[in-house]
Write a protein that binds this DNA or RNA. Structure first.
Lengths: 413, 413
DNA sequence: CTCTTTTTTTCGAGCCTCGAAAAAAAGAAT
DNA sequence: ATTCTTTTTTTCGAGGCTCGAAAAAAAGAG
């Protein structure tokens, strides 16, 4: 049962509202914040002057944005870039990327490289992450890093501290959060990559991706990030939302997860590849397929009506029926198709729409809109950054300065 | 974006917390409320004395519950039955039931009868509801009815004012809420029956049905009520959660909804009936099957291994794969099987568990626990009552009396 | 009949938000 | 150039709310 509201919670929550309003809007004035939050001008004035004094917000002289109206001009408030910084770590198949992002959301420094995640021993995989973070922290100088977020394909535990399982490595149960916190002394969470994509879309296009939407990652496997009623949906015991492992055909094609008939076993890159080569559905999935190979496959499918086109058709059908089942549960919502598979969405869309129209969930299937974004890595990185920054907003800065005690010396025994 | 907390919201929310704590616990003392809400004793004292003065709560002298400890004995607080009352209306296939329930949750008067919902014209169907409510209100005397809730199979609109579609009647888009409000001048909502079952389970066994669980109604059709993170899950455009219309086998058996391959097309009573008679999967579903017939079918299936047993096996399989897909999305959770179909759960469970074990969502399928409750009507009624009562708690009584102003004369010019 | 223990109420302090009024900072009008 | 308007922002006192500490209440124990 949720707990009552203490008196001091009030300030904390309203501070959080103000910070959130500033992050959401582009440099709003105090008046705009008052309107957005429904709080009075006096309250906004008091809170914002506190936040400025604490170095969290700053007034921007900048634009002078030529006021066409008369009256006292509005003073724009902005997040102070130096107030904090965060580290994002994106770990994908054969790929690692680290960035430092300031409090206003600008990237300070970043690095990325290829590495063989499938063959690397566990300690070396972790070592590569640590080394890259260490290098970037060196470059980022004396910034006050307050949070790190690591995104990875696969499932995490509910506390978002451990990668339970991932297709990018044979190792499971890697406690990234503990390791990184031990090394750098900064709070860390481990997040599902598709959830971060969904988070990023919310910030990129809040008009379209507002309360309810679905991000589907079409890649070697199939992932999903789901936002319901404005909140990122996560499972109760894990990161949840394993759209790729909904059952498309009971006892059907062999999936990478070892079961049969999952959506992914028809729509993942390896499944399309397998079907295009007219291999048996019982054949073990291959480990990795290059983007170039998948593009070539799509080109062949576009050129002539052969097994390649049929493979994409079956992929679209699987996703269509999967979405139909999902929509039966949650009602139709906008969909973003992300990842290399989205580059072949022209092949997938017609059978997908045909399939979804044959389901109860796809009742108004014509009205369901799909957006396409083939490059997932920038989205994942943005999602990590926004997640880390909003954590600082809500959990650290909203709490305010530790009620004077001007010079407290922490003893280290 | 959610709105800031005004100062007067504070009291309202904490009053709601106190009322909710009293409804949840059995006659708690002020001390127990303080512990449950995390608020201070002084605050609880102030709020509860207000609520007593307003006639919402009352101290119970009753039990004297032999205090074994020394010290000032705790004074139990209880909801005052006369503070309000609600009307519940349960509309099911060929069945109508109305009850008046007092603020403490005790049934004051109730009535139920059979009627042919499938053949009744729309206005007569509505007329029967109105007449039964009118009769019960007559019996209930001068109680302050503050809310009505009508539960019905099928989908409602997001505002819960209109029954969009229901299998119990050929008519669609019936605006029950407007009609009832127009007739009785009391706020009304229209709810999905399975959602009310889930609501009731939360109150009946809060240990088991706490944050995440699933209620599945096995009846002529298949319905679901889903609770996630303690909140009843509803779709964004409708009542949502159409588990029965997730796709089990693409292009498979003909469903009552007109599509093919839905879970319901294998696991609904009509589907089991159709399969047991070895009819084609293309055969139009029959309109209704009596409970006695279904029980006889189950008895035959138990007695010998024939098409009847196979029909139940396929039903279990469909539900198992459906749950597997659902669990892929939300992680496994406790399940309650409700309705006449649950009386044959012994036939359904083994193939269900076998199927779910073959899905990624059913990873720890042995640990998934099923409870069985064949009689759904009392659950639906309880759910309606609790939903109506908690609405009064949160939205009406939490707001408090209209700030004294002992004799304010409103001028009408 | 006087302790001890536990629950409940009372009371003053400290915050917080709000509305009204004042101050500030411009453009428009004279 | 100076005086209106207009709009934004700050200031200030009032009113509420919760909290902790202390007091009061209501028992059982000794």
């Amino acid at each position: 049962m949720s707990v009552g509201i203490r008196h001091d919670d009030l300030r904390r929550r309203n501070r959080a509202m103000v910070i959130s309003a500033v992050r959401r809007a582009f440099q709003p004035s105090r008046t705009e914040i008052a309107r957005a939050t429904g709080l009075s001008h006096s309250t906004i004035s008091a809170i914002s002057s506190d936040l400025i004094a604490e170095g969290i917000l700053a007034e921007t002289k900048s634009g002078e944005a030529v006021s066409l109206k008369r009256g006292r001009p509005q003073v724009a408030l902005a997040l102070k870039p130096e107030a904090a910084a965060v580290v994002t770590i994106v770990l994908a198949l054969n790929f690692l990327s680290v960035a430092v992002v300031d409090y206003a959301g600008q990237t300070v420094t970043s690095e990325q490289r290829k590495l063989s995640t499938l063959t690397l021993p566990e300690d070396e995989l972790i070592g590569e992450c640590l080394a890259m973070v260490r290098r970037r922290l060196g470059v980022a100088g004396g910034r006050r890093i307050m949070r790190m977020v690591l995104a990875v394909q696969g499932t995490t535990d509910a506390g978002r501290r451990t990668m339970l399982w991932s297709p990018i490595t044979p190792h499971s149960g890697i406690g990234f959060a503990d390791t990184l916190e031990g090394e750098f002394g900064i709070p860390v969470t481990v997040e599902n990559d598709c959830n971060m994509i969904a988070e990023a879309l919310k910030w990129r296009d809040p008009e379209r991706y507002r309360d309810d939407f679905i991000a589907i990652l079409l890649s070697h496997g199939i992932g999903m990030g789901l936002v319901l009623k404005g909140e990122l949906f996560t499972g109760t015991q894990s990161s949840g939302g394993e759209f790729g492992h909904m059952i498309h055909r009971p006892d059907g094609a062999l999936c990478r997860c070892g079961r049969r008939g999952c959506v992914e076993a028809y729509a993942g890159n390896y499944a399309i590849w397998r079907a295009a080569r007219q291999s048996s559905e019982d054949e073990e999935p291959v480990a990795d397929i290059s983007d170039a190979d998948m593009k070539a496959l799509a080109a062949t499918a576009r050129a002539k009506d052969g097994p390649e086109r049929e493979a994409f058709r079956r992929a679209g059908e699987a996703i269509g029926f999967g979405l139909g089942s999902l929509f039966a549960l949650i009602d139709p919502a906008p969909v973003a198709m992300v990842g290399i598979g989205a580059a072949a969405f022209d092949l997938i869309e017609p059978p997908l729409r045909e399939a979804i129209a044959r389901t109860a969930g796809g009742q108004h299937s014509g009205a369901i809109s799909f957006a396409v974004e083939p490059d997932e890595v920038p989205l994942i990185r943005e999602g990590c950054a926004m997640r880390a920054l909003t954590f600082i907003d809500q959990e650290i800065f909203a709490a305010g300065a530790p009620t004077e005690t001007p010079a407290r010396k922490t003893e280290v025994a």
